[in-house]
Structures are given as structure tokens and as C-alpha cells.
């Protein structure tokens, strides 16, 4: 009986981990689909300087995609990631653009728009369309043969990277969210019962 009870408790304790595993977003598609090609020779020039990314730019449906980190580093933009809703927000100056991963919906300066190809995750990097991002953040974009020139305005260059409200809305597994208060309540009842038993014992002796 005791062994069964302890096995039950052990399983109960292990359950959150199983739930947590199931709830972890597995959006990282590591397989290149037929519409994506790697643009190894494409040069990205920001304000006259070539900027290189550790992951080569990708081309999907004719759009050049770069890791979101590249955008934040090259253009000095602020990037926030909402894990719960899987949204990447890129802000620069007073402008912002929000990408919903694997969704054609884009929020440009608080206005919903549809885009040709959605942001996606490739080799654990969030890939966003470079031209669309740059243009919506107020930069100029010029496409040449094998090059993309991005021009930042002066006040964008002067802007420093400031930490913004980072979203950490990680949903807790329900067994943790409700299990812990339940365990607390049962523990309290158990404690009062033990104290009552102790009091009875003292009284009788």
C-alpha cells in the first residue's frame, strides 16, 4: 500500500515535466523547404559598411530573409520575443514591426497587414524579411546586383539600444499552476490533523 502511494506521488511529481515537454514550442524547422534557397554571395551593406551574418541570408518567395539578431545588430534596432504568442517585435525610433512566426500577419506600427511570406525559424534562428523590416523601420533600401544597400537616417544612427519590456509570459503547466496551491492546502490540512492528534495525545496522557 505504502509502495503504491509513493509510486503515485513520484508519478504525480514527474507529470509536470512531461506536460512541460509537450508544451515547449517546437517551431524550429531545420529542413529547408523547396521554396527556400541560401544566398551565400549576397552582400548586405548598411551605411556603406558590409555587415556579415553568421547564418547566410535566405531567399524565400523572392524575399531576402536574415536572422532577427542581424537586424538588431546592423540597424541598432531593439528586438523582443514573446514566447507565449511567438511574436518577434523589432523597434527602431518610434517605429515598430511585429512578426507572428509562421503567420502571414504582420503588425506594422500597430496596424495589421498581410505579407507575402511569413517570418520563420531556421536552425533555431528567427528569420525575418530584411527589406520589409528595414523599410518599415524608416530605412532606405536599394537592391543592386548581388547587394542590398540599407541607409539609416541620422537620428536612427544616434539611437542607442535600450532594454525594452521583455515579455516572459511563459505559461506554466496546469499541474504546476494548480498543483502547488493544492499541495499547499493538503499540507496545511495534514499539519492541522497532526497537531490535533498531538493535542489529543497530550490531553489523554
Amino acid at each position: 500500500m505504502k509502495r503504491t502511494f509513493f509510486i503515485f506521488i513520484f508519478l504525480l511529481l514527474m507529470a509536470p515535466y512531461a506536460f512541460a515537454q509537450n508544451e515547449t514550442p517546437v517551431g524550429a524547422s531545420k529542413i529547408l523547404d523547396a521554396n527556400i534557397s541560401v544566398a551565400k554571395d549576397l552582400k548586405i551593406i548598411v551605411d556603406g559598411k558590409e555587415v556579415k551574418s553568421d547564418v547566410p541570408p535566405l531567399v524565400k518567395y523572392g524575399l531576402v530573409y536574415v536572422p532577427v539578431r542581424f537586424v538588431s545588430e546592423a540597424m541598432n534596432a531593439t528586438v523582443t520575443w514573446d514566447e507565449q504568442h511567438r511574436v518577434v517585435k523589432v523597434s527602431l525610433g518610434g517605429k515598430s514591426i511585429e512578426f507572428f512566426i509562421e503567420s502571414s500577419l504582420v503588425n506594422v506600427n500597430s496596424k495589421d497587414e498581410k505579407m507575402l511570406a511569413p517570418a520563420f525559424i531556421y536552425q533555431d534562428r528567427t528569420m525575418v524579411p530584411l527589406e520589409l523590416t528595414a523599410l518599415n523601420l524608416g530605412a532606405s533600401v536599394e537592391k543592386g546586383k548581388g547587394t542590398i544597400n540599407i541607409g539609416l537616417s541620422k537620428n536612427q544612427q544616434a539611437q542607442t539600444k535600450t532594454p525594452s519590456g521583455v515579455s516572459l509570459n511563459m505559461p506554466n503547466p496546469p499541474i504546476i499552476e494548480y498543483g502547488v496551491p493544492l499541495l499547499w492546502f493538503i499540507g496545511l490540512l495534514f499539519l492541522f490533523f497532526t497537531m490535533f492528534k498531538e493535542w489529543l495525545k497530550n490531553k489523554n496522557s
Binding site: P67, T80, W81, I121, T126
Partner: peptide, 9 residues
């Protein structure tokens, strides 16, 4: 957070 390269997070 590391996958998203979000140092703040």
C-alpha cells in the same frame, strides 16, 4: 531566449 538571441530575456 538564446535561440531567439534575446540577451535581455
Amino acid at each position: 531566449a538564446i535561440a531567439a538571441h534575446n540577451v535581455e530575456m
